[in-house]
C-alpha cells in the first residue's frame, strides 16, 4: 500500500483524497468488526478443545495401558501380528463449513467400535485382552478425530485473524496516515496560494493607487 506524497495541490485532488480516506476508513471499520467476530469464533473453538482434549488424552492413556497388558499376556509378536491382520479400513467423513469465508473441517465419525469378528484378526488370536486393547484404542481414536477437527479449526481461524490484523494495521498505520498527510499538504499549499494571491492583489491595488 505504498503511496508517494507527490500530489498536485488542487481542489480536485483534495476531493479525491478525501474520498480515498473515506473508503480506507470504511475498510478499517469493517475489518475491525471481522477481527472481533474472529475472536469470538476462536474462543468458542478453544472452549471445545478444552473440553475434548482431557477426555481424549485420558482415553489414549487407558488404551496404552491395555495394550501393555496385551503385550505381556498375549505376547508382543502375537499382538503385532494381530494388528497387521485386522481390517484396517476405518473411514472418517470430512466436509467443510464456513466461518466468514474460512473453510473449517466438519468431521462425521461413524461407529468406530467393532466387535472381535469384524476386527478380523484370525480367530486363533481371539483373546479378551486383545479385544479390550482394540476397543480402547477405537474409543480413543473416535475422541481424537473430534479433537483434530477442533484444533484444525482453531489454527484456521487464527491464520485468518493474523491476515486480517495485518490488513487492519496497514490501513491504520500506513495508508490512512499517508492520505491524511497528503490532505494536510494540499490544504497548506492551497492556503499558501491563496495568501500569495491575496498579497499580489494588494500589491496591484497599491500600484494602481500610486498611479492615480
Amino acid at each position: 500500500m505504498a503511496m508517494a506524497l507527490a500530489v498536485a495541490p488542487t481542489r480536485m485532488e483534495l476531493l479525491k483524497l478525501r474520498q480515498r480516506v473515506g473508503l480506507a476508513q470504511k475498510g478499517y471499520d469493517l475489518l475491525k468488526e471481522k477481527m472481533d467476530a474472529l475472536v469470538i469464533e476462536f474462543f468458542e473453538v478453544l472452549k471445545r478443545i478444552q473440553e475434548a482434549r482431557p477426555k481424549a488424552l485420558e482415553q489414549l492413556s487407558v488404551a496404552h495401558r491395555a495394550l501393555s497388558m496385551c503385550f505381556a499376556i498375549v505376547g508382543t509378536l502375537e499382538t503385532k501380528q494381530a494388528s497387521k491382520e485386522t481390517k484396517r479400513e476405518l473411514q472418517v467423513d470430512v466436509s467443510t463449513r464456513h466461518i466468514m469465508g474460512i473453510a473449517v473441517p466438519a468431521v462425521e465419525v461413524g461407529e468406530v467400535e467393532r466387535n472381535a469378528l469384524i476386527r478380523g484378526y484370525g480367530l486363533h488370536m481371539t483373546s479378551s485382552v486383545l479385544d479390550e486393547a482394540s476397543k480402547k484404542f477405537e474409543r480413543a481414536l473416535k475422541l481424537l478425530i473430534e479433537l483434530a477437527e477442533f484444533e484444525e479449526s482453531a489454527f484456521a481461524i487464527a491464520r485468518e485473524f493474523e491476515k486480517t490484523k495485518r490488513r487492519v494495521n496497514a490501513l491504520e498505520y500506513i495508508l490512512i496516515p499517508r492520505l491524511k498527510e497528503a490532505i494536510k499538504f494540499i490544504m497548506m499549499r492551497l492556503d499558501e496560494m491563496e495568501r500569495e494571491n491575496f498579497s499580489r492583489l494588494k500589491r496591484i491595488k497599491a500600484m494602481l493607487e500610486e498611479r492615480e
Binding site: G27, L30, R167
Partner: peptide
C-alpha cells in the same frame, strides 16, 4: 492500487 485492494477486501 490501495483503493482496489480495499474494494476487493470489502
Amino acid at each position: 492500487s490501495s483503493d482496489r485492494i480495499i474494494k476487493l477486501e470489502l
